[in-house]
Design a protein around this nucleic acid. Structure first.
Length: 615
RNA sequence: UGUCCGGUGGUGUAACGGUAGCACAAGGCCCUUUGGAGGCUUUUGUCAUGGUUCGAAUCCAUGCCGGACAGCCA
């Protein structure tokens, strides 16, 4: 079980009896696709819900209609579900489709509350030791729940949030300001210089009320007025200098349509959304640290009958050799530097998924990097290690040759084929074995033969011996070239007694090489992905696109063992001695595509490459 | 020259006043029908200076360094 300062706080709060149940939330804005930095946050928020028998709501933080889109809502929902499936999906708080907060009276105070609904079909088959949520059955039957559940939307709270704004106005804690955006800027001052009061700051309450209602009714154009909190223009904290609470935007909203023309700002909507959903621990990234006093101010100054949520901040993920900002990712997508948001080279969750990275690998990565308040740079090698570790356990081993060179076994009978046993996964005895065909003509990897090898090279060379994995030891006797001098064929003699179980099976040969029978091989398109950038910090200086890796994608036609024609899109494969692969979605969607398409997820560790690089 | 938050090997993290540990990376060795996996092993660290204490990475002070904040974005 992970441990970090936030979980310490949660545990202490629980021990002190501060809350009956922990309630977190994951609140992305639907203005882009989720990336691995979000995965860290998802694992934190859902991990806490899971470990402390709580709930984590999925919420669209959609208060800015001009930047958001349902495409993003859908991708976010899919990515979150994929990442937590079978792990914390039974802790996922959703709501009934179309449901908005209920208004009620609590201790004589007006309250708005929208409790979560858990999907009763989640984590099916796994006996859960967690206590059932009080709301677990609110949706009724299992089928019902699945079809009628949806994420929370901050925009579903526009009604109550507007009411809360009215409450502040009536208390003299908010006012309508007529300053232009430029003047608002000027009046704000600077970090080391106090701001000035707006000339509209002391507008009478009745006038504020009247104006705010008319703002809502659409009487004023965009930017004409704002609703501002009345706090302190001289505060050393910029966010306390009468922050804007509402702005006018005559824009269609992806979720509320044309219902509103004023929209609450993040700071006003977020704390209230947390409150309305009954969130106990509102976890966000470090840049919101300076907003916390405002978060607390708003909640404190409203008459709220239920316990208030509290905000805690942790350091966002920075990963070497990639970019993480939505703006930059969007730029790569829009400028077609990559094929789309789910390009396998991108650090987006959908990209990683398409590449073949598993959800469990991502979770392991999130666990390994921990949670702190220190803003560092995580080496992408840590991610790569988590992926390899996960795949080593589960991937099916197969033989495939990416860059073939022909080998003829001169002493092997023409037309003969034999079936050899090959291990499906040495890490998992239950994975069993399969048959692979061997015949006189084979392919091996070009890299596995060198005419004049350097020291410590122990693959095939003229006159040298090498083991064909699962098969015979062969000796290279002749190198055949075409007219241009290019090597086109290796003629080898096989030790026909050296097969597993044979008399000379235990002869020590330094190298073992993968191969595929030429007559039986199937072709596959193989997409070899590499890091998208050539430098550790592409956005450190200047234009990050200058550091794009021109070799981040190479496509080859590989020769594969025949069993791979039935490759399963849900499984991962290790092409032995090379890398891990997964079937690309194009294999299914490109109708009539003549052959499977494999994405390289991650190479195997290559000690020889490292050795060779030293020269 | 403002406020807030940080600073532990190359990187990321743990140690909650009591032996500075783990992972990744790097190097070496063993093993190997994957130069994979696995096993063993080495190098490298508490920002600085004072103070409190029997004892400080931890508490206090000062300094130094780094990050965040001046959208009607989130």
């Amino acid at each position: 079980m992970p441990s970090d300062f936030i979980r310490d706080i949660v545990a202490a709060d629980l021990a002190a009896g501060k809350y009956k149940q922990i309630h977190t939330r994951f609140p992305p804005e639907p203005n882009g696709y989720l990336h691995i930095g979000h995965a860290k946050s998802i694992c934190l928020n859902f991990g806490i819900a899971r470990e402390f028998a709580g709930i984590c709501n999925l919420r669209m933080d959609d208060t800015n209609p001009t930047k958001e889109d349902v495409e993003y809502v859908d991708s976010i929902t899919e990515d979150v579900n994929w990442l937590i499936r079978g792990w914390a999906d039974d802790r996922l708080g959703m709501k009934l489709k179309g449901k908005t907060p209920e208004s009620r009276q609590v201790n004589g105070k007006q309250d708005s509350y929208l409790p979560p609904v858990l999907d009763p079909s989640a984590n099916a088959g796994q006996a859960s030791s967690l206590p059932p949520s009080p709301n677990a059955n609110a949706a009724g039957g299992r089928q019902d729940a699945c079809s009628t559940l949806e994420p929370f939307y901050a925009s579903d709270y526009f009604g109550p949030v507007y009411e809360y704004a009215l409450q502040l106005v009536k208390k003299g804690l908010a006012y309508v300001c007529d300053l232009s955006p430029e003047d608002t800027d000027k009046y704000r001052g600077a970090p080391d210089r106090p701001g000035q009061d707006s000339p509209w700051r002391n507008r009478p309450i009745d006038e504020n009320l009247d104006l705010f209602v008319r703002m809502k009714n659409g009487e004023f154009p965009d930017g004409a007025r704002t609703l501002r909190a009345k706090i302190d223009m001289a505060s050393p904290n910029i966010w306390m200098r009468d922050p804007v609470l509402y702005r006018i935007r005559h824009a269609e909203h992806h979720h509320t349509g044309g219902a509103w023309c004023i929209y609450p700002m993040y700071d006003f909507a977020h704390c209230l959304s947390d409150y309305i959903e009954g969130i106990t621990h509102s976890i966000c990234t470090l840049e919101f640290e300076v907003h916390r006093p405002l978060y607390d101010w708003i909640l404190q100054n409203l008459d709220l009958p239920r316990p208030r949520p509290h905000q805690y901040e942790f350091a966002r993920l920075n990963l070497s050799f990639t970019v993480m900002s939505k703006r930059k990712l969007l730029q790569l997508v829009n400028e077609k530097r990559v094929s789309g948001w789910d390009d396998p080279r991108l650090p987006t969750i959908s990209g990683l998924r398409r590449r073949g990275v598993t959800a469990s690998a991502l979770r392991a990565f999130a666990y390994n990097i921990g949670i702190t308040k220190y803003n560092g740079l995580t080496d992408v090698a840590v991610l790569e290690h988590a992926i390899r570790e996960d795949l080593n356990q589960s991937a099916l081993r197969r033989l495939a040759v990416l860059r073939p060179i022909k080998v003829v076994l001169t002493n092997y009978p023409e037309g003969k084929t034999e079936e050899l046993d090959a291990t499906n996964n040495p890490e998992d005895p239950n994975a069993g074995t399969r048959k692979i065909p061997l015949s006189r003509t084979l392919y091996i990897e070009q890299d596995d033969f060198m005419e004049n090898p350097p020291p410590k090279y122990f693959r095939l060379r003229p006159g040298g011996e090498v083991r064909l994995k699962y098969a015979y030891i062969i000796k290279c006797e002749e190198v055949v070239r075409d007219a241009s001098g290019k090597i086109i064929e290796l003629r080898c003699v096989a030790d026909l007694d050296s097969k597993s179980g044979g008399p000379t099976a235990n002869r020590k040969v330094k190298g073992t090489v993968h191969w595929v029978s030429a007559a039986h091989a199937i072709d596959a398109e193989v997409r070899l992905y590499d890091r998208l950038f050539t430098v550790a910090e592409p956005d450190a200086t200047g234009d990050f696109k200058l550091h794009l890796n021109p070799h981040s994608l190479e496509v080859v036609t590989a020769k594969c063992e025949p069993s791979l024609k039935d490759a399963n899109p849900d499984l991962r494969y290790q092409f032995e001695r090379l890398a891990y692969f997964a079937l690309d979605k194009d294999s299914r969607t490109l109708t009539g595509h003549p052959r499977p398409i494999f994405n390289r997820i991650i190479t195997l560790k290559d000690t020889w490459a490292k050795e060779a690089a030293k020269r």
